[in-house]
């Protein structure tokens, strides 16, 4: 508690992690890139940078959903499903009803998932983990039904999504045109908007927020709807990047999106963290994956290493922040 404890190296580093959480994360990212360059000389290039960014962006966008919900002490495990549904509906409905209506239906479906989550969590007080997992299962079931009975024609991936997902301008991925404004908006909102502040307030002490006049259910309902909206938009971007309509398109991103937020310093218990760290966390995960792939470790070993590294980084981070 006291500020006059003799500062050890660990506690000083810990204080740094608390006060400027981005610095050690960026340091870790640079370290990983350097390690990659040493292990695979010549791999670093503009193309590699561009490719890494391209892969990291959908992950970072889904991780925004985790960051925002985790700030309140929640989580959203339906983001992969919401993204997949949005992508699948867009690709299969576009040939039938045209691109703008298809996208409208896709985004509306994502919003329905968010509203159901929000209703369950805000009004019925179901735990977010259970609620979003349940919604994800139900929504996946609906998608299977849809696929069996509705689909007739082929798929059409709108041109502008292909441009956004795979195109490059001056060597950089076009998806930055979506991501940079998005990231600025999220970081601005968490610091400078009333809604953002309330996310921290609810995560830090829900009872205190309530006593201060916050109707917590309103915040939860808005939050989970917003989370699914972000997931839906990410699904469209991911469709343009992967270029196939699959029933499990974005599902593999669910857990990495949680990992990116956690590595980025957002507490799963709420009240601490922010999107800046999450973006670096998503980049760290992407570089790590790229490194393990380049080292030609077989799939099994790669996954084991990946899991171990996530655990180690998170444990270190928690250890450091708790000491200060």
């Amino acid at each position: 508690m006291t500020l006059t404890d003799t500062p050890t190296a660990m506690s000083r580093l810990g204080r740094l992690v608390v006060d400027r959480p981005l610095l050690p994360l960026i340091g870790l990212l640079i370290l990983l890139v350097a390690l990659l360059a040493i292990l695979n000389p010549g791999v670093l290039s503009m193309f590699w940078v561009s490719n890494t960014l391209k892969i990291a962006i959908p992950l970072a966008m889904l991780a925004a959903c985790q960051t925002l919900t985790m700030l309140t002490g929640g989580i959203d495990l339906s983001v992969g499903t919401a993204a997949t549904i949005a992508a699948y509906l867009t690709a299969t409905l576009a040939p039938l009803i045209g691109v703008p209506p298809a996208i409208a239906v896709a985004i509306a479906s994502a919003l329905v998932i968010g509203l159901v989550n929000g209703f369950g969590i805000a009004i019925c007080r179901v735990h977010p983990l259970i609620m979003t997992l349940g919604t994800a299962l139900i929504a996946t079931g609906c998608l299977l039904v849809y696929q069996r009975y509705v689909i007739a024609t082929g798929v059409l991936i709108p041109d502008f999504l292909l441009w956004l997902g795979t195109g490059r301008t001056w060597g950089l991925p076009n998806s930055l045109a979506l991501f940079i404004p998005f990231a600025i908006l999220v970081i601005w909102a968490q610091r400078r908007s009333g809604f953002g502040r309330l996310l921290y307030a609810i995560g830090a002490n829900e009872a205190a927020a309530r006593l201060s006049g916050v109707r917590v259910w309103q915040v939860h309902l808005t939050l989970y709807t917003l989370s699914s909206l972000i997931a839906g938009v990410t699904g469209l971007l991911y469709l343009g990047q992967i270029k196939t309509a699959s029933l499990s398109l974005a599902l593999p991103l669910d857990l990495p999106s949680v990992a990116a937020a956690v590595i980025g310093g957002t507490s799963i218990f709420g009240g601490r963290g922010g999107y800046g760290g999450t973006i670096v966390g998503a980049l760290i995960l992407t570089v790590l994956t790229s490194m393990l792939t380049l080292m030609q470790i077989p799939e099994g070993g790669r996954r084991i290493l990946f899991g171990l590294i996530i655990l180690a980084v998170t444990a270190l981070f928690i250890r450091l922040t708790e000491r200060s």
Partner: peptide, 11 residues
């Protein structure tokens, strides 16, 4: 916190 609690102050 109380200054931001109501929806009209969420912006």
């Amino acid at each position: 916190v109380p200054l931001l609690a109501r929806i009209k102050n969420w912006g």
